[in-house]
């Protein structure tokens, strides 16, 4: 068991389990009533149709330690919660997309509104933790979607994951779960899980 006080909440998608059913991304879109062209979570398949090489991954904001998006934002509208969730303030955001350029995972997205494809303000996965507005207020819901964390619920994407490939929780604990899965396969040591060092550093 990890120390709750120091918990840093992280995502991890186990590519041995992900079957690209898109349950996570649809659950997310449905729960937060996202506009049509926003996919906070996206499932991608690599080497589709090739035996032994095809695998799928569900990708959203990884809530990075030392989040690059936060470093480059010219309006300093990001804030990182004590539990590691990286959030931003849509009232401040100017939609310059610098965060997208800095992000290793292509997480920040911009709704296209208006006829001249003027980008709106940035939207990304909130780990279902809303935003800076008053918790569970209408405004928070409208701008950032549900705040499930405040209600003590698991992020809806991970809750919906059909094979429990998508894990969310304290980084120490999910790496334990993953390690256990890998060890029990009995293939010995695995290569480092994809995306882990990029997102979370090699400390864990």
């Amino acid at each position: 068991m990890s120390d709750i006080g120091n918990a840093r909440l992280k995502f991890y998608c186990d590519e041995h389990r992900c079957i690209s059913c898109d349950g996570c991304s649809v659950a997310c879109a449905e729960a937060h009533e996202l506009p049509a062209n926003i996919n906070r979570r996206k499932v991608v398949t690599m080497n589709e149709g090739i035996f032994g090489l095809e695998y799928s991954l569900s990708i959203a904001c990884m809530h990075c330690t030392d989040a690059p998006c936060e470093q480059v934002c010219p309006t300093d509208c990001f804030y990182i919660r004590e539990d590691g969730i990286v959030l931003h303030d849509k009232d401040k955001c100017i939609g310059c997309a610098y965060c997208l350029y800095a992000c290793p995972f292509g997480a920040p997205q911009f709704p296209q509104d208006g006829a001249f494809s003027i980008k709106g303000v940035m939207d990304k996965c909130t780990m279902c933790a809303g935003g800076p507005e008053e918790t569970n207020s209408d405004k928070e819901r409208e701008l950032y979607g549900q705040n499930r964390i405040a209600e003590g619920k698991v992020p809806v994407c991970a809750a919906m994951c059909s094979t429990k490939a998508l894990l969310v929780g304290d980084s120490a604990e999910i790496s334990d779960i993953y390690r256990e899965r890998v060890l029990s396969i009995g293939h010995g040591a695995k290569t480092q899980p994809y995306g882990w060092s990029t997102a979370y550093g090699s400390k864990i």
């Binding site: 010219p74 401040k92 955001c93």
Partner: peptide
């Protein structure tokens, strides 16, 4: 102003 958006408080004005 965009570069120094923080100074200008971001938001509508900078947009």
């Amino acid at each position: 102003i965009m570069m120094f958006a923080t100074t200008f408080g971001g938001g509508e004005f900078v947009r």
